[in-house]
C-alpha cells in the first residue's frame, strides 16, 4: 500500500511539472497584456517601462524559472487587472466552486445510485425505461437551458428559491440540481450495466444459495462490486464540475472558479489564468490520486497487485 502511494505521488509530480510548462507557454502565446493595460496613445517608452516592471522583457527561460520558483513558494504573481495576488483571487473563488461541485455531486449520486439499482433490478420493465429516460434527459438538455427553466419556474413563478448569487443554503439548490442532473446520465448508465453484470455473476448466485435476502444481495454483494467502475467516472466528473462549471456559474451569477477563468482569459490577465489553471490542475491530479486510493479501498485485488505482490 505504501509503495502504491509513493509511486502514484511521484507520477502526479511529473504530471504537474509538465503542466506548468504548458500553462506558462499558452499564457504567453495568447498575446501581449501590455497592449491592453496602457492607453492607446501611450509612448513606446511607457510601454517598455511597464514591460520591464512586469518582467516581460526577460528571456522566456528566465521568466519560466521565476514563475516556477514563485509557484512553488505559493506566489503566482499579481493580477494585472485587479492588482491583487492571483492566488488569493483563485482561493476566494475556489471554495465557492468546491461547495457547488460537492452539492452537485451529492445530487448526482443520490439520483444515479437508486435509479441504476432500480433499472438493473427491474431490467427491461417500464421502471428501467423511466430511469434511463430521466438520466438521458439530464445529459441531453444543455445546462443553461435547465438552469434558465428552473429560474423561471421555481424562482420566478413559484418564488420559492433565489435565482442567483450565493447568500444562503437555498442558493445552492438550483445550481446543484442543474449541474448534478447533467452528471446523472453517465453515472447511472455505467452503474446500471456493471450492476447487471455483477447480478449475473456466480458469487451473487452463491449469496442467494446461502439464503441471503435479495435486498442484501443487491446493496451489499452487488453494489460494492459495481461501484468500482463508477468511482473513476465520479472522480472525472467531480474535477469537471469543479473547474468547468462556467455556464452554470454564469447563469446563476455564481462567483466561482469558472467565471474567474473566463474573465481572466478575456482580459489577458495571465497571472490569474496561470493561477486558475495550475490550481485546477493540482486539484484534478489530487482527485485522481484520491480515486486511486478509493479504488484500492474498494477492491482488495488492487491493494495487492500494486504493492509488489507480497
Amino acid at each position: 500500500m505504501l509503495m502504491l502511494i509513493l509511486s502514484r505521488a511521484l507520477q502526479s509530480c511529473v504530471a504537474l511539472l509538465v503542466l506548468s510548462v504548458v500553462v506558462f507557454g499558452l499564457s504567453r502565446a495568447s498575446g501581449d497584456p501590455v497592449e491592453l493595460m496602457v492607453p492607446v496613445d501611450a509612448t513606446q517608452e511607457a510601454r517598455d517601462v511597464l514591460r520591464h516592471t512586469l518582467g516581460l522583457d526577460r528571456s522566456l527561460a528566465e521568466q519560466y524559472v521565476t514563475f516556477l520558483t514563485g509557484a512553488l513558494s505559493g506566489d503566482l504573481g499579481v493580477s494585472i487587472r485587479e492588482r491583487r495576488p492571483a492566488l488569493d483571487l483563485v482561493f476566494e473563488r475556489l471554495s465557492n466552486s468546491a461547495w457547488l461541485a460537492l452539492t452537485a455531486m451529492t445530487v448526482a449520486l443520490t439520483l444515479a445510485i437508486p435509479l441504476a439499482v432500480a433499472a438493473a433490478v427491474w431490467k427491461g420493465t417500464l421502471i428501467d425505461a423511466f430511469a434511463r429516460y430521466i438520466a438521458v434527459l439530464g445529459q441531453s438538455m444543455p445546462t443553461f437551458f435547465v438552469g434558465l427553466v428552473l429560474i423561471i419556474v421555481v424562482s420566478g413563478r413559484w418564488g420559492l428559491l433565489p435565482a442567483g448569487g450565493m447568500e444562503s443554503w437555498q442558493s445552492y439548490v438550483l445550481p446543484s440540481i442543474t449541474l448534478g442532473w447533467f452528471v446523472v446520465a453517465g453515472m447511472m448508465r455505467l452503474l446500471r450495466s456493471s450492476l447487471l453484470e455483477v447480478l449475473d455473476s456466480e458469487f451473487v448466485k452463491l449469496a442467494r444459495i446461502k439464503g441471503v435476502p435479495e435486498r442484501v444481495v443487491i446493496w451489499k454483494h452487488a453494489l460494492r462490486n459495481a461501484l468500482i467502475s463508477v468511482v473513476t467516472l465520479g472522480g472525472v466528473y467531480f474535477a469537471l464540475l469543479l473547474s468547468t462549471a462556467v455556464i452554470v456559474e454564469t447563469v446563476f451569477a455564481w462567483p466561482g472558479l469558472g467565471r474567474l477563468a473566463y474573465d481572466a482569459v478575456r482580459f489577458r490577465d495571465f497571472p490569474v489564468t496561470q493561477a486558475v489553471v495550475l490550481v485546477t490542475a493540482v486539484l484534478v491530479v489530487t482527485i485522481n490520486l484520491v480515486v486511486d486510493f478509493l479504488y484500492a479501498w474498494l477492491d482488495p485485488r488492487i491493494r495487492r497487485s500494486q504493492s509488489g505482490g507480497s
Binding site: S201, E202, F203, K205, L206, A207, R208, I209, K210, G211, H221, R224, N225, I228, L298, D299, P300, R301
Partner: peptide, 19 residues
C-alpha cells in the same frame, strides 16, 4: 436455502465475492 439445501458451484474462481 443454505439451511436445509445448499449448493456448490462449478467455477471456484468466480464463486466468491472478490471484495
Amino acid at each position: 436455502r443454505g439451511h436445509h439445501i445448499s449448493m456448490v458451484l462449478q467455477d471456484p474462481m468466480t464463486a466468491l465475492n472478490p471484495v
